[in-house]
Simulated scan of single mutants.
Amino acid sequence: MSVDLRNLRRVVGTSAAVVTALQAGTAALALRKRRRDYADGVWGPGLAAVAITGAALGTGDPWRRWTLAAVTTGWAIRLESLMLGRLRGTDSEDERYTEFLEGDGTPTVLAKVFGTQAVAQLLVSAPLQLAAASTLPRSARRWLFPVGAAVAVAGAVVEAVADRQKSAFMARDRDERPDVLDTGLWGVSRHPNYLGDSIVWDGVWLAGAASAPGAWLVAAPAAMNWFLIHATGAKRTEDRMGDRPAYQDYQRRVSFFFPGT
């Protein structure tokens, strides 16, 4: 068997402890500052922490575990810079959290936000954890690792370019700015930043699937895609923007998520 089960238990247990500590620390700060949206700021760091934990403690193929740690950490650093800029740019809580948590007490907030996010981080990062404790096969299947790593990097580039295009659009003078961004990547998908994010984690799963057990963890990228499309990303944006005539026209002209669909 290509998986060192004893090492996998160590990686999983330590990853769970690291994620729990990060979520607990963020929750304490968020509740004290009355900014429950601080949860957004720990999403990327939590996933990077799992990747680094696996790379450091794992006994699996070193090239794979450190490559995936590097890709995940690079992705997280860029995402974190955006999150911190957004969180520091306002003194008020994101209205999504205010509406979602209206009337909830502290135990419910901890469970609905920080507990749920911890579980989500451990689920999404499952391919990283398994890859850390797995060897690569001698068969052609081993090439799924470099292919998956390349896919993840490509997704990170798509996400970064989309965010840069959006930032440039928002920086334009309001009088000169069109009602909707529909050029560049935003002309082929209404949510290219989320699409790029999903590609990153599809690539991570593919790299992990080079070891036979990894293919069974397809629920990890599927969960990430569900979060990005339905839970916290694209659909929420559509609901918020859908009553604007310019955006309704944009919806008719440009694919929702995947280009050409």
Score class of each variant (00 low, 15 high):
residue 62 P to G: 04
residue 199 I to S: 07
residue 121 Q to S: 12
residue 21 A to F: 05
residue 249 D to A: 15
residue 223 A to D: 07
residue 166 K to Q: 15
residue 235 K to F: 10
residue 257 F to V: 09
residue 164 R to L: 13
residue 258 F to H: 06
residue 127 P to N: 10
residue 112 K to G: 04
residue 183 T to W: 01
residue 192 P to L: 00
residue 257 F to Y: 15
residue 154 A to I: 08
residue 197 D to T: 11
residue 197 D to P: 00
residue 186 W to I: 02
residue 135 T to N: 12
residue 151 V to T: 12
residue 218 V to I: 15
residue 104 D to I: 01
residue 100 F to L: 14
residue 179 D to G: 15
residue 261 T to G: 11
residue 79 L to E: 04
residue 236 R to W: 11
residue 38 Y to S: 03
residue 115 G to T: 07
residue 227 F to C: 09
residue 7 N to Q: 13
residue 166 K to H: 13
residue 199 I to C: 08
residue 94 D to F: 07
residue 98 T to I: 08
residue 58 G to A: 10
residue 217 L to K: 06
residue 26 T to C: 12
residue 77 I to Y: 11
residue 177 R to S: 05
residue 21 A to Q: 05
residue 174 R to K: 14
residue 238 E to G: 05
residue 149 A to G: 06
residue 134 S to N: 02
residue 82 L to K: 08
residue 4 D to L: 07
residue 114 F to N: 07
residue 213 P to R: 02
residue 202 D to R: 08
residue 43 W to H: 12
residue 183 T to L: 00
residue 24 A to Y: 04
residue 106 T to S: 10
residue 17 A to Y: 05
residue 52 I to L: 15
residue 28 A to Y: 10
residue 179 D to Q: 14
residue 187 G to R: 09
residue 170 M to C: 02
residue 252 R to H: 09
residue 246 A to Q: 00
residue 110 L to Y: 06
residue 128 L to W: 04
residue 187 G to H: 07
residue 68 L to C: 02
residue 143 W to G: 00
residue 139 S to F: 11
residue 162 A to K: 04
residue 59 T to D: 09
residue 61 D to H: 15
residue 259 P to N: 12
residue 141 R to V: 11
residue 65 R to Y: 00
residue 149 A to V: 11
residue 69 A to K: 01
residue 250 Y to N: 03
residue 224 M to C: 09
residue 120 A to K: 05
residue 82 L to E: 13
residue 143 W to Y: 12
residue 40 D to F: 08
residue 178 P to Y: 04
residue 160 A to H: 14
residue 226 W to A: 14
residue 225 N to H: 15
residue 201 W to Y: 12
residue 204 V to F: 03
residue 203 G to Y: 00
residue 21 A to L: 13
residue 191 H to A: 10
residue 199 I to T: 13
residue 52 I to W: 04
residue 248 Q to S: 04
residue 31 L to G: 03
residue 185 L to N: 02
residue 206 L to K: 01
residue 9 R to G: 15
residue 205 W to C: 07
residue 53 T to A: 11
residue 175 D to E: 15
residue 4 D to I: 07
residue 239 D to I: 13
residue 11 V to R: 01
residue 35 R to W: 09
residue 70 A to V: 14
residue 11 V to E: 11
residue 80 E to Y: 12
residue 113 V to F: 06
residue 143 W to M: 05
residue 19 V to E: 06
residue 232 T to Y: 10
residue 230 H to D: 13
residue 252 R to C: 01
residue 183 T to C: 00
residue 238 E to K: 03
residue 73 T to H: 08
residue 121 Q to N: 13
residue 120 A to W: 04
residue 1 M to W: 07
residue 10 R to C: 03
residue 78 R to N: 03
residue 111 A to C: 09
residue 176 E to N: 11
residue 250 Y to D: 01
residue 251 Q to R: 08
residue 133 A to M: 00
residue 91 D to G: 15
residue 167 S to K: 15
residue 234 A to C: 09
residue 156 A to E: 11
residue 60 G to F: 00
